[in-house]
């Protein structure tokens, strides 16, 4: 649906929608909703049971509350990019703006908890989320190290202080890799068998977890020279067969074509798109076996549901909708 909130009539229509809604979610820059006359103080008058959720880069208070950010900015700002990756690199980022998803998920927790409180008679409330702070909360356990010890946590790439081998090893083919975690001494023994390197079991450099951690460069180099001749999925299968955590580094094509497990679980969804028809999309990982929802459709065209929202929900006549369009409050529905 479309509403030009700079038009007074649109603000009025917005309030009528809020009056019959449970939740308002918005992520304008802090202060914009207030300026539009749609801040929580105004909306609470219309609907005391309303739960309003606002999300912005820095939250709605503090000296930087109006700063401009995108997901990758938050990845850098929170320290996540400098904490992640190989020691040789200054910082490491995802291509998928990790904080966007993390912030949205934290927002869902906050809203659902508020709904639970409301269900028990607690009424509505306002929730503010800073994407910076939500991302920090998700790496709080790493932050604590810096806070308590007064030193920067080391960048350790794919390694772990709790397990070795613990890494991403090259396999046959271009950009093919297998991630492996060997968690215990019995697993290390089985690992050496699968890699046909029984001599490692007699090597004093690899005799214990502490020894392997001390010689981790040599360990990883020797494993890599051994895994290069095998395919990622074959190696993954052979290691999982003996109870060792291993997984191919899957890309988008692999997820759609090669992952029999995701296929068997029906994780990918077929969703209707207004222009493209039926499309395959990443599924929703909520796992609600008793009340399984699914994605109804993939997005919508601009104003596609104007008639439903203004006609059916608000009970406006066609003439009223037409006048609102002429006044510029509603933009007519168009193509995607």
């Amino acid at each position: 649906m479309t509403l030009d909130l700079r038009q007074p009539q649109a603000v009025d229509l917005g309030k009528r929608l809020v009056a019959r809604s449970d939740i308002v979610v918005e992520n304008y820059t802090a202060g914009v909703m207030d300026k539009l006359g749609l801040g929580y103080a105004a909306l609470e008058q219309v609907n005391p049971e309303l739960i309003m959720f606002s999300s912005s880069g820095y939250g709605d208070s503090g000296p930087c509350s109006r700063y401009v950010t995108w997901g990758p900015n938050i990845e850098a700002l929170s320290g996540l990019s400098r904490l992640s990756g190989f020691p040789s690199r200054d910082c490491t980022l995802t291509q998928y703006a990790h904080p966007d998803a993390i912030s949205a998920l934290h927002g869902l927790v906050a809203v659902l908890a508020a709904l639970d409180h409301r269900r028990r008679g607690g009424g509505g409330q306002y929730i503010n989320l800073s994407q910076y702070e939500a991302t920090l909360a998700g790496i709080g356990h790493v932050m604590m190290e810096g806070l308590a010890l007064g030193q920067e946590p080391a960048r350790s790439g794919n390694r772990s202080p709790e397990a070795a081998p613990h890494g991403c090893y090259p396999c046959r083919g271009e950009d093919r890799w297998c991630a492996i975690t060997v968690a215990t001494e019995p697993e290390w023994e089985r690992f050496c068998h699968v890699l046909r390197k029984r001599e490692w079991l007699d090597d004093p450099r690899f005799a214990s977890l502490a020894a392997r951690l001390d010689h981790v460069e040599a360990l990883d180099a020797e494993i890599a020279s051994s895994t290069r001749g095998r395919t990622d999925y074959e190696l993954m299968g052979a290691l999982q067969e003996v109870g060792i955590a291993a997984g191919a580094v899957q890309n988008a094509e692999d997820l759609a074509r090669h992952d029999e497990h995701l296929a068997a679980r029906g994780f990918l969804e077929q969703v209707e798109h207004v222009v493209k028809g039926t499309v395959t999309a990443t599924g929703i990982p909520l796992g609600l076996t008793g009340t399984p929802g699914r994605s109804g459709r993939a997005g919508a065209a601009v104003g596609q549901d104007n008639d439903y929202v203004f006609g059916t929900l608000l009970g406006m006549t066609e003439e009223e909708i037409e006048r609102a369009i002429e006044a510029g409050a509603i933009e007519p529905g168009g193509d995607a």
Binding site: Y40, G107, A114, H117, A134, L136, G140
Partner: peptide, 11 residues
């Protein structure tokens, strides 16, 4: 400790 990931006005 790192603190609140979100801020509820009532609770």
């Amino acid at each position: 400790y790192p603190g609140a990931p979100y801020r509820h006005s009532k609770t």
